[in-house]
Every structure is written in structure tokens, then in C-alpha cells.
Design a protein around this nucleic acid. Sequence first.
DNA 1: ATGGCAATAGAGTATTGA
Length: 254
Amino acid sequence: MKIATWNVNSLKVRLPHLLQWLDTNPVDVLCIQETKLTDDKFPLAEINAAGYEVAFSGQKTYNGVAILSRLPIGDVVRNNPHYPDEQQRLLAATIGGVRFICAYVPNGQAVGSDKYAYKLAWLAALQEWVRAEMAAHPQFAILGDYNIAPEDRDVHDPAEWAGQIHCSEPEREALRALFGQGLADAFRLFEQPEKQYSWWDYRQMAFRRNRGLRIDHILLSPALAQRCTACTIDRETRKWEQPSDHAPVVATLD
DNA sequence: ATGGCAATAGAGTATTGA
């Protein structure tokens, strides 16, 4: 089973890229974020035609998440039952005996801002939901855009980013709290090349200079981590015309 | 220190992202 996560930054704009990527990367499950589409505008027919079932939860302009699957999708839950939220950032589903959560963690904008407080409160509530879901489903994975670089080695210039949004200690602590529940960062289960990132700013030729952050993650429960044989970031999509600023992250499970 | 690029909403420019 291959599973993946990708922040597409507007599914309306990126649908051709999504279909092209799935054509050459026919993963079994793909979690996408920032669809930015209300549900009535979701391109259901096109995705079904590509061989995927899909669950989605969207809104106008911002946020929006979806789970695409080649296998039947069951027990879909929108949002965190422990945290009422108008923003559509979370979607859970059971596929092939695995419980999945697709997550779009708030950006946080700037340390100390209202949006930063929302990010930390949202993450604290997520931890409670994850605890419950993991207890009920030993085969558990949470994939998405976390908007947090776990360590300095996940940052192109740690000095420039020190204490900044995506790298601040409270954010990293929130991520470590998830690791503390037994979740493993699939990417770090394996030997990896240095300077591997999943997001690059559109400005200042950041991609060509590899000035990026690794903020998109696949976290696996112990039972799933045991099944994981590879995890990679696919930089190719970022070279395409009019790309998303994020790259897909892919994990292989036995 | 600020904006730089992109997407959206909506008709010039503001907001948000990361």
C-alpha cells in the first residue's frame, strides 16, 4: 500500500497536476490540503474517472481537505470532535483496515499573533483526538501539512528561521507531543539525503536555490511504522508549470 | 525593515499563505 500527502494550493488550479501525478504515481491513498473549494464545486467526476473514490470537506477561498483512495472509503468524519471549528482542516476515514486523518494545520502567521494562539490550541485539541483514534485503531496514520519543521535539519537556514513561525519551540513541542504518543515521522525512519524539503517559497527563486522547509509529514502508529519500507519527497511536481508551492510526500507500507 | 509570488474575491486592492 502506498500513501501520500500533498498540499495542492487550490484544487481548481491544480487538478491537471493532481491527475498527471496520479497517472504516474498511482498511490492507494492520497490526502490533499488547501482545496479552497466548496463541496458543490469539488471535481468529483474527474477524480472518479481517474480511478479514485474521494471524501472531501471544503469551504470557500481557504482551507479544505480531501482523501482520495483506490480502495473503498468508510467511516468518514469531518473535523475534530474535540474542537468545534468552522475552518475545514481535518478529515478522517478508514481504508483497507487503516484509520487515516488528513490534516491541514493552521499556518499561525506570526509568533504571538491571534492566529498563532489558534494554531497551538488547535494542535492541543488534535493531540486529544489522535489519542482517542489511535486507541481505537492500532493501524493509524495522520498525513498532512503540519506547518511545522520538526528540527533545524528540516530548515534551509536555521539561523534565519530561529524562533520564527513554523520553527518556534511551542510548535515543535506540539509536534513532539504527537511523537510522544508513539507516532513516527515516516521520513525519518530511513536514511535520507541532506536538505530535503517539502515546501519552497514562490519568491526569490527559492526552489532553484533549495531554500525550503520540511513541513509536510506522514506520521505512523507503531503498527504501521513496522510496515513502512520507504518514505520520499517527490520534488518533480515543483518543477512543473504553475506548481503548488508544496511537494508530495509518499510512504510505502508492506 | 519590507516585499518579493501566488491564489482568491471581485473589480482596485486587500487578505492569506509559509
